[in-house]
Design a protein around this nucleic acid. Structure first.
Length: 236
DNA sequence: GCGACAG
DNA sequence: ATCTTGTCGC
């Protein structure tokens, strides 16, 4: 891989310059191998933010049962947190730990859904795009809120979506993944078109707001679940 | 110069 | 992201 990609501990200005350079290497057309496994990735924090916790969930892709997908593997990888959250520079804070989790995965997926933006980013390099370059895999960004770009109101029916645009370009989609719930922001990361990104997200959508890969990774990365269990154990 | 601002 | 109980609604 390129040496420039190995840079992590950068000053904000240097990181911004690197993003502009890396964004030019993104492939926004489909280059995807036949999909047999889809991975979902998300990051959580522990120790009041001192520890970064990366979660990757590997699902078996089966169009016959989708969106019900079998969980093949679950990885939780911890590392000391290396930098604070800075809007626009999220990937420099979270990707190192994410890579550690992917290294522990026994099977390499053909597609990855990431909690965060793809190219719907000021410099077209959200965490999903950045991770896609690192893994050299097709990635899709599935964010729960907007970082960049503007859009019209989204229809209220499940499946309705509107373009997310910036500087006259379409950089993603605002998707009503579930009725009566805030829409999600879908954007291609690497080796993917927006149309294909939306197709995969919708195929992985159950009755929930988030597609299965991201929903499960979210649950694994968050401490909410285990905290609940701790309380239940103490009280019993 | 004044806001906005993934997780 | 995280701290946190109950509570309103399908």
């Amino acid at each position: 891989m390129n040496s420039a990609l190995h840079e992590w501990n950068l000053a904000p200005q240097e990181a911004i310059a690197l993003q502009k350079e890396l964004a030019q290497r993104l492939e926004l057309t489909d280059r995807i191998d036949p999909v047999t496994h889809i991975a979902g990735m998300d990051i959580g924090f522990e120790d009041d933010g001192d520890t970064t916790r990366a979660a990757v969930v590997l699902l078996k892709w089966d169009p016959a049962t989708a969106p019900d997908l079998a969980v093949v593997e679950q990885i939780v990888h911890r590392e000391p947190t290396r930098m604070p959250y800075i809007p626009g520079l999220l990937s420099f804070r979270e990707i190192p730990a994410a890579l550690g989790a992917f290294k522990k995965l026994s099977t390499r997926p053909e597609l990855v859904m990431v909690d965060g933006q793809g190219i719907a980013h000021p410099r077209r390099l959200g965490i999903a795009a950045h991770l896609g370059l690192w893994l050299d895999l097709p990635t899709i960004g599935v964010a729960k809120s907007r970082l960049y770009g503007k859009h019209e109101e989204v229809g209220e029916r499940r499946g309705d979506w509107t373009a997310l645009t910036a500087r006259g370009e379409t950089i993603g989609a605002v998707l009503r993944s579930r009725e009566k719930v805030k829409p999600i922001f879908v954007s291609p990361g690497h080796r993917m078109s927006l149309e294909t990104s939306l197709s995969w997200v919708m195929q992985c959508l159950g009755r929930t707001k988030l597609p299965e890969p991201t929903r499960l990774a979210d649950r694994l990365a968050s401490r909410r679940v285990e905290k609940r269990r701790e309380r239940a154990t103490r009280t019993s």
